[in-house]
Design a binder for these strands. Structure first.
Lengths: 232, 232
DNA sequence: TAAAGTTATTATGTAGTACATATTATTAAC
DNA sequence: GTTAATAATATGTACTACATAATAACTTTA
């Protein structure tokens, strides 16, 4: 009999540590009791007694939840349920040097998807003031030719687009993905190519064109990236 | 003098615990030494000695990194740097009941952005087989009228679209956002409205239309949601 | 000599004790 | 009745001890 089958028949013995289990139990407990942010939580020693494990284990589990921002602790007052920063935790593991190539590629594509999907929010919320600022960024890039500056400007321009959606989470998400994007583009040997439509053109479309024009323009702007996807 | 200014002038005393500091130090250390997944890490006791803190503190910090999947531990062999699952950590804090309304709204919009931006990847990677499966899902929804089923089918259809992009991270991301989407839509009193373009129409466009047709169709399909954004 | 079995070593996992510290509650002093 | 001193409490940190699993080192045996 193949070893795999045996393993399947017997069922794998869990290698979870006590801390893993307690972490899970606490999560379930909070949800089950439908605690809300600000609600006081049981004391460490109460958890120790209820769960039948050492304080050490409980503290390791709590330490994890505290890192995620799910709980806060005030000396003497005890612990409170808190509001985790959904993106903050994401940021912690978003290191291009650790992420595998396949996921990096996925994130790169994700950025393209976001960029292409921005248009609708953009046209819903753009203001004249925003467009003026965007225009300034786009014009500035003409002056200096240094590569480092060009990259910085590229980031400023696209970052401003995200900002203009008025969606703070989206904007932060973009900032987080920047290192990934930078990493993937430098991996590809090809030079920092720009499509037929440049930043100044995009601003112009934003000012006088339609949403559809902008989408088409953005695609042309990103076309070198899409082309490289097609050739895989 | 206002208290805020005083606080600014003096500089706030950090309330970080030792575990917080050690966690940060370890992160920096891994990065500085450019460890790669699979590389062995120092033993707990070595870290204790090097950092000058108790084993307890070190273990709390390590416990956090282990939760994120950044490190793995094998008894006796010690610890290894591992590849964290970038989305896994995200999932841990994505509970609609805890997230504040503003962020929920942001995530709802993020989903719309993704959906609108899918088209380019979709047209790059769609296969006839995919379209057949999608068509089957779209046709199935006509038969049963129960609301629960309709929602389930809605999820299946849009989920299939993400799947067709061939981007696994994107697909998983969508699955994670589903509870948020469900939560926000049920909060809005309005009935589960569907735009002028339905799923069958979208499949038809995917089969015979252009990318631009599809984008326009998707917008019409999601229009009720965009309209509700505009009225805020 | 090589395979097999036994023992020792090592690093993590868990338990428990002790004390520091900050914050609240209580009591004492004026 | 307000302020000052004191006690109580919950978390933070340190330290010791031992269990356990995985490996290494060693011994035995065919």
């Amino acid at each position: 009999m193949a070893l795999e089958n045996l393993s399947k028949d017997l069922g794998r013995v869990s290698t979870d540590t006590m801390a893993d289990i307690v972490e899970l139990r606490l999560r379930e407990y909070f949800k089950k009791k439908s605690f809300k942010p600000g609600d006081p939580l049981p004391k460490e020693m109460e958890l120790v007694a209820a769960l039948g494990v050492s304080r050490n284990v409980v503290r390791e589990a709590l330490s994890r939840l505290r890192m995620l921002g799910m709980i806060e602790t005030r000396k003497k007052r005890g612990m409170l349920l808190a509001r985790p920063d959904v993106l903050g935790t994401f940021e912690r593991v978003l290191d291009p040097l650790i992420i595998d190539d396949s996921t990096l590629q996925d994130l790169f594509e994700l950025r393209l998807v976001l960029e292409m999907g921005l248009a609708d929010l953009l046209f819903l919320r753009k203001t004249d003031k925003d467009i003026l600022q965007l225009e300034k960024i786009a014009r500035d890039e003409g002056h200096e030719g240094e590569k480092k500056f060009r990259v910085k400007n590229e980031i400023a321009f696209h970052g401003k687009l995200y900002e203009m959606t008025g969606n703070n989470t989206l904007k932060r998400f973009q900032v987080m993905l920047l290192p990934v994007f930078g990493y993937v583009t430098t991996m590809e040997k090809e030079e920092y190519k720009i499509g037929k439509v440049n930043h100044v053109d995009l601003v112009e479309i934003l000012k006088t064109g339609t949403k559809e024009d902008f989408k088409a323009g953005m695609y042309e702007h990103l076309k070198p990236h899409f082309d490289s996807l097609a050739n895989k």
